[in-house]
Simulated scan of single mutants.
Amino acid sequence: MLVRLLGAVLGRAVRERGADAVNGWWVQVRGWWLRYSFGGSGAAAVRREGFGRGDRGAASVFAALALAGLVGVTALIGQVGVGVVARHRAQAAADLGALAGAGALAGGAEAGCAAAGEVVRRMKFRMEGCEVHGWDVFIAVAGKIPMGLFGDRTVRSVAGAGPVEESDATIGNR
């Protein structure tokens, strides 16, 4: 009876799926299955079933996208960290190489540059240049670092070392 009344109000053919002891009556109107349930008070409630159920599951999709973004940002921060550490290692190799070269200058400019090159090589970098000016040694080092999806990058650093002038040494003793 309720189904015929609904069809008359809508002016459309209404199909009935039958009664369910728990869920009430199922009726299809305009391609949607509607459920009529009768509560303890005798009032009828209507619920639409099918596609387009609103935003159910939207939180799961949002959480998955947020997690993917978080993983991406974490990977990017990690790659920046790798670059910074490589730059510091290159600077350390240049500093130690320059100190070793300055310490070996008593044997000549070639001996100083050879000592600097050996220290740089042991630190897994390559020496791009070595200049000796008096008792000062200036070297340039470079090395390639893998950056994952960003390919290999080259880090460079320069350093110099030599004896301290007497006027410079007295400044620290004041």
Score class of each variant (00 low, 15 high):
Ser60Asn: 02
His88Tyr: 14
Trp135Glu: 15
Gly69Ile: 01
Ala111Pro: 07
Phe150Trp: 08
Arg4Lys: 10
Glu110Pro: 00
Gly40Val: 13
Ala104Ile: 01
Glu16Val: 13
Ala93Glu: 14
Ser60Trp: 05
Val46Phe: 10
Gly97Arg: 07
Asn173Ser: 12
Gly151His: 04
Met147Trp: 00
Gly108Trp: 04
Val132Asn: 02
Arg174Ala: 09
Gly117Arg: 14
Ser167Lys: 11
Arg12Val: 12
Arg56Trp: 01
Ala114Glu: 03
Gly52Ser: 04
Asp168Met: 07
Ala159Cys: 13
Gly57Thr: 01
Gly69Gln: 03
Ala66Arg: 03
Gly42Gln: 07
Arg122Gln: 07
Arg53Ala: 10
Gly40Asn: 12
Ala115Thr: 00
Thr154Met: 15
Ala8Arg: 15
Asp152Gly: 02
Gly18Leu: 11
Gly83Ile: 02
Gln91His: 13
Gln79Val: 01
Met1Trp: 02
Arg53Leu: 09
Arg122Met: 05
Arg4Gln: 14
Ala19Arg: 15
Leu99His: 06
Gly83Pro: 05
Leu105Tyr: 11
Glu131Gln: 04
Arg4Trp: 06
Lys144Leu: 14
Asp20Cys: 03
Gly129Asn: 10
Leu67Gly: 06
Thr74Pro: 00
Gly7Val: 04
Glu165Cys: 06
Ala104Glu: 05
Trp26Met: 07
Trp135Gly: 14
Val164Trp: 06
Gly42His: 04
Gly148Asp: 02
Gly78Asn: 04
Trp135Leu: 15
Thr74Tyr: 01
Gly40Ala: 15
Gly7Cys: 10
Ala161Ile: 08
Ala8Ser: 14
Gln28Trp: 09
Ser60Phe: 08
Ile171Lys: 11
Gly172Leu: 13
Gly50Gln: 12
Arg126Glu: 14
